[in-house]
Design a binder for these strands. Structure first.
Lengths: 175, 175
DNA sequence: CAAGATTACTAGGACTTCCGACTATTTGCC
DNA sequence: GGCAAATAGTCGGAAGTCCTAGTAATCTTG
């Protein structure tokens, strides 16, 4: 039973009619929420045959890019910008499926490394291809719309403190 | 410990270096995921003093726009585009807090109406003001970036079947 | 008008995420 | 050296979302 109208556009009209303010922002924020829901569903559906979900795929991808195929759990959390306990959970599942192994850090006994197994490396490669096939769930958005969205959200992420405002100066760095 | 670089830009470089394809799409999809996380945190923080979270606020807002201040649970789910069981959960919490009441439908005994209480109407008004104050969590995005994002995501939502592609023709509608 | 299909809601369960608290280890500093 | 502070990871718990399945009521159709 699909709706016969855009519920977010309808909400915007109501916002304006009631003088609630910031209707454009409300619309964009709600759209981002809904877009996230659509993407997650499409992506997880594409990953399901590979026994993965998006968060687990992201962790595997990160490991596959590292020199040794292994990273401390904490670093994974930093890069993926999720809570440490979420990393524990993610790695728990990947380990249970034999896609990664927990390995003690060679010098720091506090640290645990997640190390990609052969099986994990095969899975992440196949999964990446599957996601590329579905355009990461973004079907319906043009290249221009995609890049504009990416640019706008980069500004949001930067303002939220995800990364510093200025690219590090290379010519006048600390000597 | 904020990162000193943009982890999504870094991921894009790795995607390209490994020939994984659709790097622009990956970047946009990942940005949407992260943006959602940022927005939800900001919005829920702003709503916390009002005893609400975003999903509950959305349900109250919808009710407040209706003529009678009440709607069937199913219609709430359709408009908010969430699963029926999520609506049950949302209304459970709102009812426990005395912000809505479950009322039987006057003619259809299958249907339950959620009806806004006086307390609920006060809460949603105050909460809407609080959210407008923080620009719905979009601080960091310009008006232009906001509207471009909204437009792009509308295309995504439409392609996903949230609402029909064509505005209903008025001159040649079903007679 | 009666049986089957549809619709509305809810119960139970799986998953993911976050938060607070806790243990173990390492680092920094007097 | 030794003690406080910071760091790394995990556990338990609370929320929220979805899915499957089940009950109750209404609609449809032969």
């Amino acid at each position: 039973m699909p709706l016969s109208f855009d519920p977010i556009a309808e909400a915007r009209r109501n916002w304006e009619a009631h003088g609630w303010g910031a209707a454009d922002r409300m619309s964009a924020a709600t759209s981002i929420t809904r877009a996230h829901q659509i993407l997650l569903h499409r992506i997880d559906t594409a990953l399901e045959p590979h026994g993965l979900v998006f968060s687990r795929f992201e962790a595997l991808a990160l490991l596959s890019f590292s020199r040794t195929g292994s990273l401390p759990l904490g670093k994974i959390g930093d890069r993926l910008q999720v809570h440490p306990t979420s990393v524990t959970n993610t790695i728990d599942r990947l380990e249970a499926d034999g896609l990664v192994a927990r390995v003690p850090h060679p010098t720091d006994r506090r640290t645990t490394l997640a190390e990609l197994t052969d099986s994990g490396r095969r899975a992440v490669t196949a999964a990446a291809a599957a996601l590329a096939d579905i355009g990461y769930g973004l079907d319906g958005m043009s290249d221009l719309e995609t890049s504009r969205t990416d640019d706008a959200l980069m500004a949001l992420r930067q303002a939220a403190g995800d990364f510093p405002p200025d690219p590090p100066a290379r010519t006048t760095g600390p000597h």
